[in-house]
Each structure stands twice: as C-alpha cells, then as structure tokens.
Design a binder for these strands. Structure first.
Length: 597
RNA sequence: GGCCCGGUAGUACAGUUGGUUAGUACGCCAGCCUGUCACGCUGGAGGUCAGGGGUUCGAGCCCCCUCCGGGUCGCCA
C-alpha cells in the first residue's frame, strides 16, 4: 500500500509559502489533518510540524483512477502532493489559518503511508485523558501544542549551549554508569555482569565529576546532563530528568551568580521577549522563611507572613502560648479585603488544607463591618487583639489566618496557605516572571529518621567563612555558601561554592556522622583527588524540564518531556519497567524472587 | 507508605430515588454532494459501565476489596 518517494523532493514546509508563491509548482509532504469530501471535490489539510496547508483534489483535473485513490485518503495518512500554489479569493479565504489565502491544486500525489484511525483526535482541542495520550505518545506528539513545547525546550537548550560556549565553558560529558552515592536520593542501580554482586548507579547529578574536572583544570564546564533519582513523582518531578549543569574555578558566590544572571536575562529575552532587570533580588533563607514561609517564595503577590508570637506569648489561649513555650511560634497572614471572599465552609476547608502540612489547626479572625467574628476571640484579651491589629495591619474587610506550631510546621502550612489564598483571590498576575536568589541556606538539617545532621544541599558545600568555627560546636546554626534560583515560586536551579580543602572536607564528613573509613569508602576517590591541588570552585545546575515547563506556561513537567513516566514511575507506552528473561538475570547473577503470572 | 479526586462506546461526557432495551456529541463505516474549512444530508455499526466480591426481587448507581490514572504529604543530598 505504501508508495515510495522514488526521487520526489519536498519543496518546503506546509506553512512556508505565501501569496508571492502563487503559480509555483511545489511538492509538499505531511499528514492528513482533516479531510472534507464534497463528492467530486476533496479538500485535505496537510499537516507538518509547522502547520497546515489546504490541498485540493479535483475530479475534473485528475484522472478517474487518481481521484478514486484520493477518495481513500483518511486521517493521518501520509501524503506527498505535487501541484500549483493557488491564491484563494473571496469567501474561499479562511482567515483563521496562517495559509488561509492559499491552497495547492493537486496534479500528482502519492500515499506514502496509510494509517489506522487514531485513538484520539490529533489536535489541540483533544480532551483525551493523559494516560491514553501517553500510551500513544507518538501520536500525542503530533499535536501542535506538544510540538510547540518540544521546540521551546530545544530552544532553551540551544540558548544555554550558545551562551555558555561564548562565556568560555566547555561541554564535557560525564558517565551515566557510575558509583552509588547514597547520601542523597535513592539511586537507580544497574547490575554488573562482569562483577557478580556489584552495581553501578545512574547519576543523581554529575556533581563529583564536575568537581574533579575543576581539579583537572577545565575551569569552566557545563553539560546538558541526564540525571536519575528513584523517588516518587510529582507534577514537576520525573525520575529521569535533565539538568543544565555548570561549574567554575577561582570563583565566589557572586561570580557564579553574575554569569547566571546574564544567562537568565538572555534566556527570557530570546524565548519570551521578557526583559529581566539585573541584578536579581537576593533574599536570605531566613528572611524568605519569615516573610513567605518558603525557601522558594513566589514574590508576585503579597500576603506575607507576620510573626505575632511576641504579643500572644503570655496569652491565656493555651494553643498560642503552648506553641511558643515549646520553641515554636504564632504567625499570621492578613488577607486584605478578603472578608467577604470566604464562606464559613470555605474557611473550614482551608483548615483541612493546612492539616496536610501537619498544622493542628487554623485560627482565623474575620473583620466584618460589625466587628470581628472569630472562634478564638473569646480567648484573647482586648489589648492582645489591639496588638495583633497593629502588627498585621488588620482592618475592617480583612481576614486574618493564624497558625501556632513548631516553626517548621508554621512555615510549611502558612507558606502553602499563602499560595492557596493567592490563587483563590486571583492575586497572581499573569505574564510576570519574578526571578530571585535565595542564599545563606543552613548547612545542615536534622534528620529524625537518621538521628543525625544531614547536608541540606550536599556534603561538598562550603560553610560560610564566618560560621566555619561552629561546625562542631553548633552545627545547626552554620550557614552554607549555597544558593537557589527561584522563578515564580518554583526552584529552577541551585548550587554552591564547594569545599576545596581536604581537611575541611574531612571535617564535614565527620560533622555528618561519617567515620573516616565510611567517608573513604564512599568518596575516597574525591578525597584522594583533593590531595592534588583542587582550585576554589563552585557552580550550579538548572532543572531544564522545570524551566521549559515555566517558559511554556504549562503546569505539568510531562508536557515538556517527549516520553515521560507516569506517577508510579512506569512508561505506559513501552511498558517499562518490565520483567526480563531468566537468561539475562542469570548472566547478571540475579535471583528473581518476585514474578507475576 | 498516608490522604484527596477520578475510571460508562474509539474519544469527551450524561445517566434522576436502585427499576423496561444504558443515552448525547464528536469520531468511524456506507451512500449522496464541485468551494469546503467545526462542510452538509441520509442511513448504519459500535458497550467486560476498570476488575472481583457483596447487599437486593432487581445494581452503571449502595457496600467491601483490588487494579489503573491524577494531585498531594512523607520522600526528593
């Protein structure tokens, strides 16, 4: 059935032609988007990745045999048509189409491929559920919206390569099969055939290799690097994803940030024609948490947090007093003018919402025209209410939401509530791109599960100079030379200045509770290398997928990945992961303990 | 692992209080049609109501379990 090209060459893409081409003989190739059969006249919209062109099969100008053949054309058939570009006039013009003033009158054509009826409509209006689209991803990718996303992703990667190349960065590949570094996320493991019982790990990031490249003297490195983390998925998280990864030698924090600000400026100009003002705002971690309850604050709107602990610390209301006495705090968000925006039922729903973040409850005060309505008013003294009003700017027409708990819980729940409120109150402006740096992250994070401090960024991050002496005496208060780049409340990248002193690195491993033997076993190659003159260095990495997602304006990372995985980390199209032959397992020295029918 | 939402022709949905033969639109198939462009007209085919179990005279609808998808908390150095 499929005909061969036999020397036919495509003149150009479907949308490449204009009125100036009228009369020109052209050859177009593409997929049948829409067919309209009027009996003795058949219209087909021919589609390629640029768009569509109408081609016309006329029974008067084609042989009967050819016209009958044209009548067999169906959706998604692949055609090659030869004919004359012709102007459409009068009501033949379709002003909704880019090529609506043109059509090609077919003189000769080939049906290069036939197609079964696709399981869903290949168009942007298609509402088929995502699982079906992912099962037939190759068809889903024909939709203009998906093509637009992948083209944008390409553009971002291309701009990155162009920019970093011009800045003297070398793109150097690092291994995909590498050594497990269990400090971070779970590793994907690959069994070794030649080393029974031993495993490679897929890289969570090229971190150690890029540091070694600095030691080797490649003082500006970058890579568009595939990374793998065996953790649960989210709307903005895939198990295999791509980083724009870079590292620089002989630099401090500001140097890394300066180069990257220029990159971001270029990126937003060339993708969205948005002008980014430099330098970008810088926010300390502590301030970000205090004001926004988040280390990746969305600064496109207000609703900032307000600490009212001081004025309620002696309150008779035991929930408030208790939280403070236990080392926590009481904080509030004043939703200005939102008094009438929430029914009692909706407020209760917000209370349920914050429980997701382990808050025990949500206190609120609704300042109506006739006074404050609030379930907690009876517990508060008049001067406490007055003080709260003063601190938070609480006025008639406002609603105040208050959470009292451990700081971690207060930040998480109020930070989430802040986003929820902004969404409900339509406070988030469109087409605004707020980029900012968050810096001075804590070096360590206490892990209840492990019963020890863990590196918040990673174990190779340098502490801040002024906190160096507290590494052992007070690890919890040590700040790191670590920074994240945040766009509209999404962490799109992060990095740090690394430790380049062998002694300090050893001290760090000890602070993290590793014995020297454990450190040697896991990171010995790095420690060894550091004996040979590592330069001061630092860098960062962007999540390319997230960047593409935000720049494309979609809310799912799957929209900007050609072949993504679903929530249980499987691929509906290939069926991966899947069982393998016993023979393969034998060769890998793996005994299979679990197998379904 | 927890919580929330969802699963009905190829697709998107409707389906009343549990009650006769499960509907609508698009798509598909056939016929007619020379200017369509959301083509039109006529006719037709198409259902494991996710799967299993239960309650009931009777289940798409109620209950339980399982599977699958989405969101999220934990997790993600």
């Amino acid at each position: 059935m499929s005909e061969l090209l036999s020397g036919w060459k495509r003149t150009g893409y479907c949308t490449e032609f204009t009125a100036a081409d009228a009369g020109r003989e052209v050859t177009l190739m593409g997929w049948t988007n829409v067919r309209r059969d009027l009996g003795a006249l058949v219209f087909v919209q021919l589609r390629d990745r640029t768009g569509v062109m109408q081609v016309v099969f006329n029974s008067e100008t084609l042989s009967k045999e050819d016209f009958d053949r044209a009548c067999t054309i169906r959706s998604e058939y692949v055609l090659a048509v030869r004919g004359k570009v012709t102007l459409r006039t009068g009501n033949m013009v379709n002003s909704n189409m880019k090529t609506g003033d043109l059509e090609v009158l077919v003189e000769e054509f080939k049906i290069l491929s036939t197609s079964e009826t696709p399981p869903f409509d290949i168009s942007d209006e298609c509402k088929a559920n995502e699982l079906l689209r992912l099962k037939y991803r190759y068809l889903d990718l024909r939709r203009p919206a998906m093509q637009k996303h992948l083209i944008m992703r390409h553009k971002i990667a291309f701009i990155a390569r162009e920019f970093f190349d011009k800045q003297g960065f070398l793109e150097i590949e690092t291994p995909i099969l590498t050594k497990s570094t269990p400090e971070g996320a779970r590793d994907y493991l690959v069994p070794s055939r030649v080393h029974p019982g031993k495993f490679f790990a897929l890289p969570q990031s090229p971190q150690l290799f890029k540091q070694l490249l600095m030691l080797s003297g490649y003082d500006r490195y970058f890579q568009i690097a595939r990374c793998f983390r065996d953790e649960d998925l989210r709307a903005d998280r895939q198990p295999d994803f791509t980083q724009i990864d870079l590292e620089m030698s002989f630099v401090e924090e500001e140097d890394v940030q300066a180069v990257n600000e220029e990159f971001l400026k270029k990126l937003f100009k060339e993708t969205l024609d948005v002008d980014i003002q430099l330098p970008l705002p810088r926010l300390k971690y502590e301030e970000a948490m205090d004001r926004f309850g988040s280390d990746k604050p969305d600064t496109r709107f207000g609703l900032e947090l307000c600490d009212i602990s001081e004025v309620v610390k002696h309150s008779e209301f035991s929930v408030f007093r208790g939280a403070i006495e236990n080392g926590g705090s009481v904080r509030a968000i004043n939703a200005k003018g939102a008094s009438g925006s929430f029914s009692r039922k909706e407020i209760d729903a917000l209370g349920e919402y914050v429980k997701t973040y382990r808050a025990k409850g949500l206190a609120w005060m609704n300042y109506k025209e006739d006074g404050i309505a609030s379930p907690i008013l009876k517990f508060l003294k008049e001067e406490e209410v007055t003080a709260i009003k003063e601190l938070t700017g609480f006025e008639p027409g406002d609603i105040l939401f208050i959470i009292a708990d451990a700081n971690k819980t207060v930040y998480a729940s109020l930070g989430a509530l802040r986003l929820k409120l902004a969404d409900k109150l339509n406070l988030i402006p469109e087409n605004q791109f707020n980029l900012l740096w968050v810096r001075e992250f804590p070096q360590f994070e206490w892990s209840e599960e492990e019963g020890r401090f863990m590196a918040m960024h990673h174990p190779f991050t340098s502490p801040m100079d002024e906190d160096m002496d507290k590494l052992e005496s007070d690890p919890g208060s040590v700040r790191a030379k670590a920074y994240d780049i945040v766009l509209n409340g999404v962490e799109i990248g992060g990095g740090s200045i690394r430790i380049h002193s062998q002694e300090l690195q050893q001290q760090m491993f000890r602070a993290l509770g590793f014995t020297d033997e454990q450190a040697q076993y896991r990171f010995g190659f790095l420690m060894d290398a550091f004996k040979y003159g590592p330069p001061p260095h630092g860098g960062m990495a962007y999540g390319l997928d997230r960047l593409a997602m935000l720049i494309s304006g979609t809310s799912s990372i799957r929209d900007v990945i050609a072949f993504p995985k679903v929530q249980n980390a499987s691929c509906p199209m290939t069926g991966a992961p899947d069982f393998v032959d016993d023979k393969q397992l034998d060769e890998l020295h793996i005994a299979c303990t679990e197998k379904e029918e």
